[in-house]
């Protein structure tokens, strides 16, 4: 990611509006079925670069499923049948000739609960780097330090980098998972209610981190917390029962909702 371009985008309105028209993710007529139910119904949308796009909607409306389609984690669930198209940087991710591991490495994933890998704090971050073919100890160590600092975890763990990551607190684990995802230099960050299991402090760190990160990354954040959506969102996609009801810039969605369902949702959420 050329950072000069990023800086230009922030200063120059016209460049930014051009960048906003360049979608990173294009979803077209995406349908997901499981045994008897239709989980995602003809979902089509685009997700712009270097913005925080929030997927908003009540529990069970298909937000997690949509997120998992993006890096094809749906492959893990035998019950799910997916059809439609998803393009990331213009590349069809369902194309069976494409290397799925390379596509997944474009995206960092943060789940509802942190799942540190069964290894040391250091190796949790080194793992993804090694998969990318980085062997140099020096580079790995530098990256471990850089990304742990990035998520404000370095001071807390610098003396015990070689101890098991699974012994950290939940909040620390989630920040480690974010650092682990960032270390492989993804373009997109997928976050599924990342602060729902966290204490207020860790969840603030994560939120602040997202705001800082959006100049370099495209962030897709699932949440059902209205206030969090308002704090973070540039764009909002509002879902209900597997359908996209409304989507657009955050101010429009929050100030001027069109559909009755969204009005109701915003009203109850207050």
């Amino acid at each position: 990611m050329p950072s000069t371009l990023v800086n230009m985008q922030q200063k120059n309105i016209t460049v930014e509006s051009i960048a906003a028209t360049v979608p990173v993710v294009e979803i077209d007529k995406l349908n997901v079925y499981s045994k008897g139910s239709h989980i995602l119904k003809n979902v089509s949308t685009v997700i712009p670069k270097n913005k925080i796009t929030v997927l908003l909607g009540p529990s069970g409306c298909g937000k997690t499923t949509l997120l998992k389609c993006l890096n094809r984690l749906t492959d893990l669930y035998p019950d799910l049948k997916v059809n439609g198209s998803i393009r990331i940087d213009g590349e069809d991710i369902f194309d069976s000739r494409k290397d799925i591991t390379a596509i997944r490495q474009k995206m960092g994933l943060l789940l509802q609960r942190p799942y540190p890998l069964p290894m040391s704090i250091y190796d949790n971050i080194a793992y993804g780097l090694k998969l990318k073919g980085i062997r140099s100890k020096k580079i790995i160590s530098e990256k471990v330090e850089k990304h742990l600092k990035e998520v404000a975890l370095w001071e807390e763990v610098k003396d015990r980098l070689k101890t098991s990551a699974q012994r950290l607190s939940i909040g620390q684990q989630q920040r480690l998972c974010l650092a682990r995802g960032l270390a492989v230099e993804p373009e997109i960050i997928l976050a599924d209610e990342p602060s729902s299991a966290l204490d207020p402090i860790s969840s603030r760190v994560i939120e602040e981190e997202f705001i800082r990160l959006k100049s370099d990354y495209t962030i897709i954040l699932v949440t059902h917390i209205l206030r969090q959506a308002k704090r973070l969102a540039d764009n909002v996609i509002f879902m209900y029962y597997g359908e996209i009801i409304e989507s657009g810039p955050a101010e429009e969605i929050f100030e001027n909702p069109q559909s009755e369902i969204l009005k109701e949702y915003l009203h109850v959420g207050h």
């Binding site: 984690l73 591991t101 960092g108 994933l109 789940l111 890998l117 993804g128 998969l131 492989v184």
Partner: peptide
């Protein structure tokens, strides 16, 4: 083994 750990592993690009 929790499915979340598998997802985390694949998401990092593991085969």
């Amino acid at each position: 083994i929790p499915i979340g750990l598998q997802e985390a592993s694949y998401a990092l690009g593991s085969t």
